[in-house]
Amino acid sequence: MLLVGCAKTRIGKVELSDEKLPNFLKVGTTRAQEVLEQIGEPFGYREQENRSAMIFLDFQEDYVNLLITEIRLEKAYRLDLVFQDDILQKAEIKKEGWGFGANMDPQLLQLLAR
Protein backbone atom coordinates (compact mmCIF):
# COMPACT_ATOMS: atom_id res chain seq x y z
CA MET A 1 0.00 0.00 0.00
CA LEU A 2 2.82 2.40 0.92
CA LEU A 3 4.53 1.81 -2.43
CA VAL A 4 1.47 2.84 -4.47
CA GLY A 5 0.51 6.42 -5.34
CA CYS A 6 -1.55 8.31 -7.86
CA ALA A 7 -2.22 11.94 -8.78
CA LYS A 8 -4.37 13.85 -11.25
CA THR A 9 -3.91 17.47 -12.29
CA ARG A 10 -5.80 19.65 -14.72
CA ILE A 11 -4.91 23.15 -15.83
CA GLY A 12 -7.17 25.22 -18.05
CA LYS A 13 -10.54 26.92 -18.13
CA VAL A 14 -12.16 24.88 -20.88
CA GLU A 15 -12.47 21.15 -21.49
CA LEU A 16 -10.89 20.32 -24.86
CA SER A 17 -9.94 16.65 -24.50
CA ASP A 18 -12.89 15.51 -26.66
CA GLU A 19 -11.57 17.88 -29.37
CA LYS A 20 -15.03 19.44 -29.78
CA LEU A 21 -15.61 23.18 -29.72
CA PRO A 22 -17.73 24.57 -26.87
CA ASN A 23 -21.37 24.72 -28.06
CA PHE A 24 -21.75 28.49 -27.80
CA LEU A 25 -18.93 29.17 -30.27
CA LYS A 26 -20.41 30.02 -33.67
CA VAL A 27 -18.24 31.37 -36.45
CA GLY A 28 -19.68 34.63 -37.78
CA THR A 29 -21.85 35.39 -34.75
CA THR A 30 -20.04 34.88 -31.42
CA ARG A 31 -18.50 38.04 -30.02
CA ALA A 32 -15.17 38.26 -28.14
CA GLN A 33 -16.99 39.60 -25.08
CA GLU A 34 -19.20 36.49 -25.00
CA VAL A 35 -16.10 34.26 -24.93
CA LEU A 36 -14.69 36.23 -22.00
CA GLU A 37 -17.99 35.80 -20.16
CA GLN A 38 -18.43 32.08 -20.93
CA ILE A 39 -14.86 30.77 -20.63
CA GLY A 40 -12.99 33.54 -18.87
CA GLU A 41 -9.70 35.32 -19.36
CA PRO A 42 -7.62 33.70 -22.11
CA PHE A 43 -4.11 32.40 -21.52
CA GLY A 44 -2.87 34.34 -24.53
CA TYR A 45 -4.33 37.40 -26.24
CA ARG A 46 -3.19 39.62 -29.07
CA GLU A 47 -4.83 42.56 -30.83
CA GLN A 48 -3.75 44.09 -34.11
CA GLU A 49 -5.90 46.76 -35.68
CA ASN A 50 -9.37 45.19 -36.00
CA ARG A 51 -8.19 41.59 -35.60
CA SER A 52 -7.63 39.79 -32.35
CA ALA A 53 -6.72 36.28 -31.26
CA MET A 54 -7.27 34.33 -28.05
CA ILE A 55 -5.55 31.16 -26.90
CA PHE A 56 -6.95 28.80 -24.24
CA LEU A 57 -5.07 25.76 -22.97
CA ASP A 58 -6.21 22.49 -21.46
CA PHE A 59 -3.51 20.38 -19.82
CA GLN A 60 -4.23 17.09 -18.11
CA GLU A 61 -1.79 14.88 -16.29
CA ASP A 62 -2.28 11.47 -14.67
CA TYR A 63 0.43 9.94 -12.54
CA VAL A 64 0.62 6.45 -11.09
CA ASN A 65 3.40 5.10 -8.95
CA LEU A 66 3.30 1.34 -8.50
CA LEU A 67 6.02 -0.39 -6.52
CA ILE A 68 9.18 0.43 -8.51
CA THR A 69 7.50 1.86 -11.59
CA GLU A 70 6.04 5.27 -12.24
CA ILE A 71 3.79 6.03 -15.18
CA ARG A 72 2.94 9.57 -16.25
CA LEU A 73 0.35 10.38 -18.93
CA GLU A 74 0.08 13.93 -20.21
CA LYS A 75 -2.30 15.49 -22.70
CA ALA A 76 -2.31 19.10 -23.82
CA TYR A 77 -4.82 20.85 -26.09
CA ARG A 78 -5.00 24.40 -27.39
CA LEU A 79 -8.03 26.37 -28.54
CA ASP A 80 -7.25 29.16 -31.01
CA LEU A 81 -9.91 31.80 -31.64
CA VAL A 82 -9.51 34.54 -34.23
CA PHE A 83 -11.83 37.57 -34.27
CA GLN A 84 -12.41 40.20 -36.93
CA ASP A 85 -14.15 43.32 -35.60
CA ASP A 86 -14.81 41.35 -32.39
CA ILE A 87 -16.76 38.64 -34.28
CA LEU A 88 -15.44 35.08 -34.33
CA GLN A 89 -13.88 34.23 -37.67
CA LYS A 90 -11.97 31.06 -36.87
CA ALA A 91 -12.05 28.48 -34.08
CA GLU A 92 -9.67 25.57 -33.97
CA ILE A 93 -8.57 22.94 -31.44
CA LYS A 94 -5.06 21.59 -31.75
CA LYS A 95 -3.61 18.71 -29.84
CA GLU A 96 -0.46 20.39 -28.59
CA GLY A 97 1.16 17.23 -27.46
CA TRP A 98 1.03 14.15 -25.34
CA GLY A 99 3.48 12.39 -23.14
CA PHE A 100 3.96 8.97 -21.71
CA GLY A 101 6.64 8.42 -19.16
CA ALA A 102 7.50 5.17 -17.52
CA ASN A 103 10.40 4.97 -15.16
CA MET A 104 11.79 2.10 -13.13
CA ASP A 105 13.99 2.99 -10.23
CA PRO A 106 17.23 0.99 -10.79
CA GLN A 107 18.46 1.47 -7.23
CA LEU A 108 15.25 0.12 -5.73
CA LEU A 109 15.34 -2.75 -8.22
CA GLN A 110 18.87 -3.67 -7.09
CA LEU A 111 17.82 -3.44 -3.47
CA LEU A 112 14.88 -5.79 -4.04
CA ALA A 113 17.07 -8.23 -6.01
CA ARG A 114 19.42 -8.50 -3.04
Binding site: G12, K13, G40
Partner: peptide, 14 residues
Protein backbone atom coordinates in the same frame (compact mmCIF):
# COMPACT_ATOMS: atom_id res chain seq x y z
CA UNK B 1 -11.33 32.59 -12.07
CA UNK B 2 -10.10 29.08 -11.42
CA UNK B 3 -7.16 28.09 -13.61
CA UNK B 4 -6.52 24.55 -12.45
CA UNK B 5 -6.76 21.90 -9.78
CA UNK B 6 -5.29 18.58 -8.84
CA UNK B 7 -5.03 15.92 -6.20
CA UNK B 8 -2.62 13.20 -5.24
CA UNK B 9 -3.07 10.15 -3.06
CA UNK B 10 0.15 8.75 -1.62
CA UNK B 11 1.78 11.29 -3.95
CA UNK B 12 1.67 15.07 -4.17
CA UNK B 13 -0.58 16.53 -6.88
CA UNK B 14 1.96 16.74 -9.66
Amino acid sequence: EKTGSGWGFFAPAT
